[in-house]
Design a binder for these strands. Structure first.
Length: 278
DNA sequence: CCAACCCCCTGAACGC
DNA sequence: TGCGTTCAGGGGGTTG
């Protein structure tokens, strides 16, 4: 159930371990998780490749290969990527196994089967959806002016705006709540009703909050393996998400839950007092 | 262009 | 205990 901090955590854990490793064989038990090319072609082209590096763009994970090709993954709601010795118990719902050298396997599992993989040939036009993504949250171009440009006219709740990957890439339901809490803005405030001060707060809190949770996620390879690839450890540091009807950590008022744009949102009705629009 | 809805899928939690 | 309902942190597609 990863958002940007979790995808970045996976990237940081796996990159040093995967760098330089040869993909000897790919086995798929659910070929439909491969979006492009065909499953057969995906396996054929991945086999014999060597892993250069791991990248991330928004919530997409990128396995960059020596030939210049890349394997792109989106974990969606329940996808999981784990590097394990081949003797290690296989997680349920493991749909793809990349057999590496020295008895290691890179395994992709996904209970809900929403996750997808692509393999792009060197120079091939991107068909993953990444090309539509907005700025990375850590991009210095993410300024109050940029936020004005993308959200200034939106008659949609800011919460909804923040989930739109074409504006800022990588924010999901959890961290949008956390960011809005830190910025003191109600999630149902319309984008067009934000004022300069709120845009400044957001431009600051978006990278700051995500960086904080990436840091809190930091995990060793062994811990990551023991946790089955989903031992994200920053959840104790969430201030509002999952804390509906509990006291606000800042002011003690009871946190409220409200469905906004079809997504459950938790906020403090006292601290998050900017609604705008008057 | 936009909003509102639908879909994909399983499992956990909750209500009766 | 069992059964039905609701919900879950994702995104794409269609319709009006």
């Amino acid at each position: 159930m990863p958002e940007l901090p979790e995808v970045e955590t996976i990237r940081r854990v796996l990159e040093p371990q995967l760098k330089g490793k040869l993909i000897r064989q790919v086995r798929l038990s659910r070929p439909e998780i491969i979006s492009a090319p065909t499953a057969e072609e995906f396996c054929r082209r991945a086999e014999g490749e060597r892993i250069c590096s791991l990248g991330r763009r928004g919530k997409f994970l990128q396995i960059e290969l020596h030939s210049g090709a890349e394997i792109v993954l989106h974990l969606r709601m329940s996808g999981c990527l784990l590097l394990a010795p081949k003797e290690y118990p296989l997680a349920k719902h493991t749909h793809a196994i990349f057999e590496l050298e020295e008895g290691e396997e890179l395994r992709f599992s996904d209970v809900r089967r929403f996750g997808r993989l692509w393999l792009l040939a060197p120079g091939q036009e991107d068909c993953t959806g990444r090309q539509k993504l907005g700025l990375e949250p850590f991009d210095p171009q993410l300024t109050p002016e940029y936020l004005q440009q993308i959200w200034g006219k939106k008659k949609r709740p800011i919460k909804d705006c923040m989930l739109d990957q074409q504006a800022v890439a990588g924010i999901g339901n959890i961290y949008s709540d956390e960011i809005l809490f830190r910025a003191g803005i109600r999630p149902d405030c319309l984008g067009c009703n934000l004022e300069e001060e709120q845009r400044q707060r957001l431009a600051q809190m978006i990278p700051q909050t995500l960086a904080y949770f990436i840091e809190k996620n930091a995990i060793s390879p062994q811990e990551y393996l023991d946790g089955g690839g989903r031992d994200y450890r920053n959840t104790p540091f969430l201030q509002v998400y999952g804390h509906s009807a509990q006291p606000c950590p800042r002011c003690g008022s009871l946190l409220e839950r409200k469905v906004i744009a079809g997504r459950s949102s938790v906020f403090c009705p006292a601290c998050q007092n900017f609604l705008g629009g008057s």
